Simulated assay, not measured.
Amino acid sequence: MSDLHSQLPPLILGGAGWSYQCHPAPDALPVANVIRQAFDSGVRAIDTSPYYEPSEQLLGKALQNASITKHYTRSDYILMTKVGRIKSDQFDYTPAWVRESVSRSLKRFNTDYLDVVFCHDVEFVTEDDALGAIGELLKLVDEGKVRNVGISGYRIDVLARVAQSVRKRYGRPVDVIQNWGQMNLQNGRLEVEEGLKAFEDAGVQTVLNASPLNIGLLRAGGVPVGKLGDFHPAPEGLRSVCRDVAEYMTSQGESLAAVALRYALWRAEATSHDHFRVCTITGISTIADLTENVNTSLTILNPAEKSPTSVAGATLDHSQLERDGRLFDKAREMLGDWSDYSFTSPDPGWSPELKKIINPSEKSDS
């Protein structure tokens, strides 16, 4: 059984911030400096994907920087990436591509193993596609190139169903599930019985809650717009009310981003127990992002005595939680009918079998 749940820090550095989706010029960002400071702060786990172009390349180069290699060895940090999603509308879950993608990631990171490889956005492909890809990843585990196998996506029901099927077909659970945008101040659907409980029932011990700010929705200044334009799925009504909530938090001497991160970290700790752990992935692009996220984390998590500035080994600060309670309640009240609103993933016309958007005539012919 994987011991990943005992190895991960409560806060994980998300590599999507170094992508064209989230930033107009990720190549210009100080990636090595951010990683060095993250590691020094106890944030020694990174999650990325080849889909977050050019995140893998930038991270790989940064991890070979002397400022990092002089102080940290490969075994000091956890490196997670994904396979299967190539572009917004292009997927390849074939065993051959899974193996090729892992090989490419190993070269980019100049490492002989990856701590976790996820099948990326499993709701876009068939269950058989996902199971086949997982089977190939399990072979790579046997070969020592991958240590843990996971699935990621937005659709909680699909994640739960695939996890159950993995256990039936391979006689073992997936090691970790990553879900995004559904354990945060606006949307808490991951906590319903069909979410975390279903994952645990499938034998999963580690769940990663990605995007506690819901891809930048829960912050002042609006959603991030990168080189590829505005990709955020939130409708204008939800964006508008989030702007109102951000203004309210500012009037209270707070930032919505900080309040939202504290909420997500609270829920992660509240839903974890001895053999089941929820950790939070937050997108970080700059030193300022990192500093804000670590400092915010340390207001809701009591640091371990041995390292008062590290999020590693931290426990929940109940006094801060009491102070935050009214802010959480007010935000949910202001969100009103938008509370627990979920996005549609994939788009209604998407065919997991054909892996493309199809029109009504194609549906009737098939």
Rank of each mutant, 00 (worst) to 15 (best):
K145E: 12
R108N: 12
R167I: 03
Y113K: 08
R99I: 09
R161M: 06
V102F: 10
H120N: 09
R189G: 09
F124T: 04
R169F: 13
L114A: 04
E136T: 11
N148W: 05
L114D: 02
L114M: 09
E143G: 01
R169S: 02
V117D: 05
G171C: 11
V102Q: 05
I134G: 02
G188V: 07
R161I: 00
Y93C: 11
V166A: 10
K139S: 12
R155K: 12
Q186T: 12
W97L: 00
W97C: 02
D115S: 11
L185K: 01
R161W: 07
P95M: 08
D115G: 10
V166T: 08
C119S: 10
F118V: 02
R167L: 14
R169D: 03
R155T: 13
K145R: 15
R99M: 10
P173L: 11
S152R: 06
I86R: 12
A163V: 05
K168G: 01
W180S: 14
R169E: 11
V158C: 06
N179A: 15
C119W: 11
D129L: 00
S103I: 02
D89E: 14
D142N: 06
A130H: 04
D121T: 04
E123V: 01
V158A: 08
K145I: 05
D92H: 03
L137Y: 07
Y170E: 02
K145H: 12
V98S: 01
T94Y: 07
K87G: 12
I151W: 01
A160W: 10
G188N: 13
G188E: 14
G132Y: 06
S152E: 09
D92N: 14
E100M: 01
E100R: 07
I134K: 02
I156W: 03
R99T: 15
E127F: 08
V158D: 10
V102K: 09
Y154I: 10
F91R: 04
S105D: 04
A130K: 11
D92K: 01
V149H: 08
N110W: 01
L137N: 00
L138D: 07
H120I: 05
L138S: 01
V174M: 05
A133L: 05
G153K: 03
V116A: 03
Q90P: 00
R104Q: 14
L140K: 01
Y170N: 00
D129W: 10
G135W: 13
L106N: 04
G153L: 03
E127K: 13
V176I: 15
